[in-house]
Design a protein around this nucleic acid. Structure first.
Lengths: 107, 107
DNA sequence: TCCTTTCATCGATGGACGTCGATACACTAT
DNA sequence: ATAGTGTATCGACGTCCATCGATGAAAGGA
């Protein structure tokens, strides 16, 4: 899950044409935010700095496997990272990944 | 397709908690960019300022109905707008919509 | 050891999405 | 009018996705 990312723009001022591979990469990242639950999770992590999965399970009226699935999607997209401490798993945002996405839109 | 938009943040510095409706709205916009073809279309429009549908049909190896479908998705999301001049339809970006999305990520 | 708690994974299901050919619509030219 | 061209819509099909219950894995406590 390395998140080595090239400075590719999709739109905004002075954009360069995108090769198919870059389009695929960008679309994959936006797809990670294409679900309201995942947007809400990311939003929560953005204001909490670190969050236990059990809190997320309590915050959203969805089953535990569903929340776990959304967390995996966000992990695979490189937007969040997790670490286990004892019995609990803690998730936090990857700020650079968000910045990357923002720059993609032409900041 | 009015695009009256509230200044809602989903992440980034100093974000406020999101109500379910706002999450839905944000997710819908990101979903419009969750397809590589649509990312490429937006990218192309960002550097061409205005573009005929026939050029898009030629640029992507997809059927004309498929391109038309993607353009509709982008239109419904408020990211692009179109106008017919004679036989041809011209599409262009809605810069404010892109800026909105960028601000959503905490610019 | 056994039970409980926390989280991840599996398998199934219903619905949404991308894609296409066929067709309808709008405009132009002859 | 008729034919031709550029777009949009329709209907269908296959695939992907969100969701769930059931199950597995790991850790801690009795």
């Amino acid at each position: 899950m390395s998140m080595k990312t090239l400075p590719v723009l999709c739109c905004g001022p002075a954009v360069e044409p995108l090769d198919p591979e870059a389009s695929e990469t960008l679309a994959a990242r936006f797809r990670a935010l294409s679900d309201p639950t995942r947007v809400a999770i990311v939003n929560r992590l953005a204001s909490t700095e670190e969050c236990c999965v059990c809190d997320l399970n309590a915050a959203f009226e969805l089953s535990q496997p569903t929340i776990s699935h959304h967390l995996k999607v966000l992990r695979d997209a490189g937007l969040v990272e997790s670490s286990r401490r004892g019995t609990w798993a803690y998730y936090r945002l990857v700020p650079d990944a968000v910045s990357e996405l923002r720059r993609t839109l032409g900041g």
